[in-house]
Amino acid sequence: MTTASDSSSSMTKRPNRLFKNWMAKLASVPMILTALVVFVGGTAWTIVYSFTGSRMLPKTKWVGFDQYERLWDTDRWIISIKNLAIYGSCSMILTLFLGFCLAACLDRKIRYESAFRTIFLYPFALSFVVTGLVWQWILNPDFGLQNVVRSWGWESFTFNPLNDPNTVIYGILIAGLWQGTGLIMCIMLAGLRGIDEDIWKAAKVDGIGTVKTYVMVIIPMMRPVFVTALVLIASGIIKLYDLVVAQTGGGPGLASEVPAKYVIEYMFRAQNLGQGFAASTMMLCSVVIILIPWAYLEFGGKKRG
């Protein structure tokens, strides 16, 4: 008896968990390294050096919160934050709304659906630089939309958002929406296609109107799709830079400045790395502030329920 159990225990020794599935683990090592070194490491390094007085080259000359004090004292930074807030909130709401409406329209089994889908998705294939340039030309009062409409006879038509400091951010918003709505529309369309046909029938029999069905039945069912869309839109908002550079160069004056542009310009043109690091750390903070409540809602809630 003992010998049998001895031999069986030596044959069936529990495999070391570290080497279980080692090929998959090996394959994921590069990604883990990249994530740790580049993302986490780079971020930590930036935050640490934002407390130094680094100029063109990084130096370990500690200055405490000086960079941050200067940052929040700078008009250009305040304007950037304001612009990002306006652009961010408008972009988020409008992209979701327009994307969903377009998807709902396309979902109604219309003719030439794939042609429409292509047309709406096409701008997403363009880079932000091209988008910015194209919309700079369209919104140019002398050659663009304003001129065209005036040549049709409507002499007093004005549409010149890019040259007025108060409306330039909305000009950029138009370009951004044009570029990004297509992708959100496609995601929403995929989500809508996953809705059981019978739900529509049941709602029809119950006498619920189309709009009400969308709002009270369909959209709550599409929660994961909305979360995905939200994340995609948010990432596009934070990294807003090349669109501004191509479309307005930050102008007129400083009216269309955005945080990412502030970071790049102070890091390289002004050769003041410390300032740039402080600004990008603030950008990271804003993302974290939004992420934490969301993460709690998504993952914390599940533990309770």
Partner: peptide, 15 residues
């Protein structure tokens, strides 16, 4: 319209 016909419906997938 379905809601005006005086009918109630039960579906295979419950809906």
């Amino acid at each position: 319209e379905p809601s005006e016909r005086g009918i109630g419906m039960v579906f295979q997938s419950y809906a």
